[in-house]
């Protein structure tokens, strides 16, 4: 049996666990409800109703997808250790890296399914409200999925060596900073201090640049999106998540499970 099949076995079980977890259905329900409230908010405005509707919709999808990624991601490894299910898994012919990748892809598939459900809700409400739907909307939604791939890898990294409480704080903090890191670098570049410029540049290089995944404004305003606006962030997400998963595996390989 190849490593890929073992990864698929772990991933399949992770998806099955999420599907049988009612809390996630509740979160998706609230996300859909929030997308629906965009109609209400849009009705309060005389101008750009469609834009308000779609801004609220995209914000709801992004926030709930990331919230679920953090909420579930930080427990991915910790729950296995806490409930001692990890003993029976890791005593089988499976490498720790395969286990970790299986958990990662399992959660990612779950989140992408949820984003698809929320996206379908967004499309239905946009159609009912007569708001335009273009390729840009699909691209924006695809980049939310890519952003979630980065967030899950970070949550998994922290989950591999710390408590869920700390992991949630670290991951949520990194997500917030990740959306500000580009602005931080721009601010630092204007500084007269070489140290500040170098420090902000270094922070930008190390922390994820999550604003690269935000095409909401383009989509909602009907602005043109170049292929590089999508391809580059996708490549960045792949590279960043791969590096973080390497780090998570390196830490996880050295852990004792007492």
């Amino acid at each position: 049996m190849s490593g890929i099949e073992r990864i698929l076995a772990i991933a399949g079980n992770t998806v099955r666990e999420a599907i049988r977890h009612r809390v996630l259905y509740t979160l998706v329900f609230f996300a859909l409800a929030l997308i629906g409230t965009g109609v209400l908010l849009a009705s309060l405005s005389y101008v750009e109703r469609e834009r308000i509707l779609q801004d609220v919709g995209f914000a709801a999808i992004r926030v709930f997808a990331v919230a679920i990624a953090i909420f579930v991601g930080i427990h991915l490894v910790h729950r296995e250790v806490d409930r001692r299910t990890i003993f029976t898994i890791l005593s089988k012919p499976i490498a720790r890296s395969e286990f970790l990748l299986g958990k990662y892809f399992g959660l990612l598939v779950t989140l992408w399914l949820q984003i698809a459900v929320m996206g379908a809700g967004f499309v239905v409400i946009s159609m009912l409200a007569g708001a335009p739907l273009e390729v840009a909307h699909a691209a924006a939604l695809g980049l939310v999925a890519a952003e979630v791939a980065v967030v899950v890898s970070v949550a998994l990294l922290f989950s591999a060596f710390t408590t869920p409480m700390l992991a949630s704080l670290f991951t949520a903090g990194l997500w917030l900073i990740g959306h500000l890191s580009r602005d931080l670098r721009a601010l630092g570049a204007q500084s007269e201090s070489d140290v500040v410029r170098r420090a902000t540049e270094a922070v930008y290089r190390v922390l994820p640049d999550l604003s690269a995944f935000d095409l909401t404004v383009h989509a909602a305003r009907g602005l043109e999106i170049a292929a590089s606006d999508v391809v580059m962030p996708l490549a960045y997400a792949f590279g960043y998540a791969t590096l973080v998963l390497f780090a998570a595996t390196w830490i996880f390989e050295r852990r004792d499970f007492r």
Partner: peptide
């Protein structure tokens, strides 16, 4: 036993 199972080094 956990050392034998690779759970502890």
């Amino acid at each position: 036993l956990k050392i034998l199972m690779g759970l502890i080094r």
